[in-house]
Amino acid sequence: MIRFALRRLISLTLSLIVASIVIFAVIEIIPGDPAAFMLGVNARPDTVAALREELGLTASAPARYLAWVTGMLTGDFGTSYTYKTPVAGMIADRIWVSFPLAIYALILSTLIAFPAGIYAAARRGRLGDVSVMAATQLGVAVPNFWFAMIIVSIFSLKLGWFNAIGFPGWDAGFWPAIKALTLPAIALALPQAAILARVMRSSLLDMLNEDFMRTARAKGLSRRQALWRHAVRNAMIPVLTILGLQFAFLLAGGIIIEQVFYLPGLGRLIFQSIQARDLIVVESVVMLLVFTVIVVNFAVDIAYAAVDPRLRGRR
């Protein structure tokens, strides 16, 4: 198990190196040079030259790549051109919104999806199953921003339980911050929960037809006991896959929800930086997201092996 984790760790490192090269190369191959691109078409040549100097674009590409990577490793992400502040600080502020939001949403979606999926599978074809499936159908179909607006109008505007927009920051205390993230987390979580519940249900139904389920029943387990003790763990593999993909989406794809709730998250940061052509910020945030996705995949791989002993020896 530990050897398996080490092997996955090596491949994780390799993926990170490849990803950083690709991101660097993409920024590199943007027509013209980054300085000219960032300043737009009407920039004066001497401004461009000054920016080139400031960005260190006069050095060779490998040297700049190395400087970028070593900078990131020491926590120096460069300085934003538009805001004139260190990128590291900007990301740090935003990450304390996006990360908790993504985890909050993931926990909610798991808490909704697992019971719903298991409930539906256990009552296959009966009313409970049909209603859960109808609800998930709706959850998948409804766009999350529209759903966000609906819950804002009910819980904030009508009932006044939550603030409609904004984030007080963690300095305001843990519970106020969590409270501010609750509506966005629900809006993010519900469509994901709908997908996850469907995967959980179908994966469980596959398991219910397996021979070992009949063996479990022949031992004297009731239908429900057999489901919980033998089917659920076997059904986890596809569910974990989806869960890993969803976390990456929740982190980066929360942008629409961040806009709706006016939250200062990573999604908005990257959106604003692209509009401002602040490539330094874009580059760093993208690298950070890639890093997160790769680490999440690593965690999912480890979880696979924890769930399924057959996967431990391989790869």
């Binding site: 021979d211 070992f212 022949a218 033998h230 002993p309 057959r310």
Partner: peptide, 16 residues
């Protein structure tokens, strides 16, 4: 008690 035909699939693969 019962013993089934297909030993390859009759046991839960994720339990010792």
């Amino acid at each position: 008690a019962m013993v089934f035909q297909e030993p390859m699939t009759a046991l839960n693969p994720v339990q010792c």
